[in-house]
Simulated assay, not measured.
Amino acid sequence: MKKTLRLLVKMILAVLIFVITYVFFALVIPYIPVNTKDVDPQEDVTVYIRTNGVHTDLVVPIKTEFKDWSESIKFSHIKSQDSTMQFIGFGWGDKGFYLDTPEWSDLKFSTAFVAAFGLGSSAMHSTFYKKINESKDCVKIKISAQEYNNLIAYIEEKFKRDENGKPILIDATTYGQNDSFYEAKGSYSFFYTCNTWANNGLKAMNQKAALWTPSDFGIFQHYN
């Protein structure tokens, strides 16, 4: 009985130490900036970072001379099928969390546990917009052609693809009329979250970013 009690105490202490250490680094490391100097000041393409208060999306124009996203992320994949959309947002995350938790009230312990410890698969959430309004939660960034090509490659690399090289659409309930889900590579975890993925996207295009961040705050503090 005593051995069991000591083991239980050690387990609780280990969990507490992990949580305290994680929270400490999650609060401190995002303050360490990267790419503070714009090495390529050309302004060929306008992109955005957008947060809903928890999750960060990378938002890009649907059609440019460099890429037409509607060729693979099709208007026919969204409920509205509205081809007048001008922008598309990409957000990577845990598949179970995305599909099973449309509202925070729907969150289950099992879903959170699987996501937190990297035990699940992932999905790419794509959202179409007719226009983008700048705000504290939506920041405009002007980048060069090369930087945008880097971002294109970064986003495309995360999609799983079928035998024809097309993103694999997930037949699932969406959040609205203008979004869709696709199978993606990798696993979400405490250390590699949806915001970590978006932050790394900023790094890929040599824009201001945190050294590492699990939160949207870690990204937006460098822009607001």
Rank of each mutant, 00 (worst) to 15 (best):
residue 138 C to F: 09
residue 179 D to C: 13
residue 4 T to Y: 00
residue 93 G to D: 01
residue 165 G to P: 12
residue 96 G to V: 07
residue 217 F to Q: 11
residue 25 F to I: 05
residue 215 S to H: 07
residue 138 C to D: 05
residue 144 S to E: 00
residue 112 A to E: 06
residue 140 K to N: 06
residue 17 I to N: 02
residue 216 D to F: 12
residue 214 P to G: 07
residue 198 A to I: 04
residue 106 D to Y: 09
residue 125 H to R: 03
residue 96 G to K: 08
residue 126 S to F: 09
residue 134 E to S: 14
residue 23 V to S: 11
residue 140 K to E: 10
residue 85 M to R: 10
residue 104 W to D: 00
residue 195 N to M: 07
residue 15 V to L: 15
residue 16 L to D: 07
residue 189 S to P: 15
residue 93 G to T: 02
residue 124 M to N: 00
residue 161 R to Q: 04
residue 174 T to K: 15
residue 36 T to W: 09
residue 29 I to C: 03
residue 182 Y to E: 00
residue 79 K to Q: 00
residue 34 V to D: 13
residue 139 V to I: 15
residue 206 N to I: 12
residue 213 T to E: 02
residue 173 T to H: 14
residue 202 L to N: 05
residue 20 I to T: 10
residue 44 D to S: 04
residue 50 R to I: 07
residue 103 E to M: 08
residue 166 K to R: 14
residue 52 N to Y: 13
residue 39 V to M: 10
residue 84 T to K: 15
residue 209 A to C: 08
residue 84 T to M: 15
residue 55 H to N: 08
residue 210 A to S: 12
residue 205 M to K: 13
residue 145 A to C: 08
residue 82 D to Q: 12
residue 132 I to C: 14
residue 41 P to M: 03
residue 103 E to F: 10
residue 118 G to D: 08
residue 147 E to I: 05
residue 29 I to T: 03
residue 182 Y to I: 01
residue 31 Y to T: 10
residue 121 S to H: 07
residue 204 A to Y: 11
residue 101 T to L: 06
residue 130 K to N: 14
residue 211 L to H: 09
residue 173 T to I: 14
residue 15 V to M: 15
residue 14 A to C: 04
residue 100 D to K: 14
residue 163 E to H: 12
residue 68 D to W: 13
residue 38 D to A: 14
residue 73 I to S: 11
residue 63 K to A: 05
residue 213 T to F: 03
residue 155 I to F: 03
residue 169 L to P: 15
residue 173 T to C: 10
residue 94 D to E: 06
residue 109 F to I: 08
residue 53 G to Q: 04
residue 160 K to I: 01
residue 157 E to Q: 15
residue 5 L to F: 01
residue 92 W to T: 02
residue 105 S to G: 03
residue 134 E to C: 11
residue 162 D to L: 13
residue 142 K to L: 08
residue 158 K to C: 01
residue 168 I to L: 08
residue 143 I to A: 00
residue 205 M to G: 10
residue 88 I to P: 12
residue 222 H to Q: 06
residue 123 A to S: 08
residue 188 Y to T: 00
residue 96 G to P: 12
residue 29 I to M: 03
residue 40 D to K: 04
residue 191 F to T: 06
residue 42 Q to H: 04
residue 147 E to V: 02
